[in-house]
């Protein structure tokens, strides 16, 4: 009887130890699984970080390339402007500029002879040539005005105005064809003409 009780006691104690061992094993498994999950998350985060750094370097390279391209475009534009400035005629000291223009004029309808028509058309063409010279040398004032009513263009007006004093202009060639007279005029402008 005693032995049976002792045996029962031993069995129960052993069963108790066995249960503890099982619970310990599950806890270890759980912690292992958590550890593995954390490790996986860490590796993922690391991968993401490396991806982000790669992307950042790529973006940096792109921006650098864009800056370089912009600088190149700027340099090209500056070169173009410099070449344009070199081509543009600028009146320098002890230099002169030769300007050539063509003026057009029409004879009036009520002329008494072809000679009169020619003379009057030539006069008009000379005035046009003078205007062209004045435009080139001194410039044009332009004024524009548009009127819009109920989203519709009502009136559009452009006014131009030229005023100048033209001296020593010469007629180079005159042609008269079908009532239209064309006069080629030239003027040589030197720096001393403008020196005060």
């Amino acid at each position: 009887m005693r032995y049976s009780i002792l045996l029962a006691l031993l069995l129960s104690v052993s069963s108790l130890f066995g249960a503890d061992k099982a619970s310990n094993a599950t806890a270890i498994e759980q912690t292992n699984a958590e550890l593995a999950a954390v490790k996986a998350a860490a590796t993922q985060a690391r991968e993401e970080a490396t991806l982000a750094t790669i992307q950042a370097t790529k973006a940096k390279e792109d921006s650098k390339r864009a800056i370089d391209e912009l600088a190149q475009v700027k340099a090209q534009r500056e070169e173009e402007l410099a070449s344009m400035a070199a081509q543009e005629q600028v009146l320098k000291e002890n230099r002169s500029i030769h300007i050539s223009v063509v003026g057009q004029g029409v004879a009036p309808m009520n002329t008494s002879s072809p000679a009169q028509a020619y003379a009057l058309a030539k006069r008009a063409a000379i005035a046009d040539a003078y205007r062209a010279i004045a435009e080139k040398v001194k410039g044009v004032r332009i004024d524009g005005q548009d009127t819009v009513k109920n989203m519709m263009m009502q009136k559009s007006t452009i006014r131009t105005y030229v005023q100048a004093m033209v001296k020593n202009a010469n007629v180079v060639e005159t042609t008269f064809k079908e009532g239209l007279c064309e006069v080629e005029m030239e003027i040589v402008i030197s720096h001393s003409d403008f020196a005060q």
């Binding site: 005035a127 205007r131 004045a134 007006t157 452009i158 105005y161 005023q163 001296k167």
Partner: peptide, 24 residues
């Protein structure tokens, strides 16, 4: 003409119709 003339030119374009006056 060689002595020098004052040039005054006015041009108006209204509704695509052009008119100009040049005075020497």
């Amino acid at each position: 003409h060689k002595l020098g003339l004052h040039v005054e030119h006015k041009e108006t374009t209204s509704n695509l119709q052009n008119s100009s006056t040049t005075t020497l």
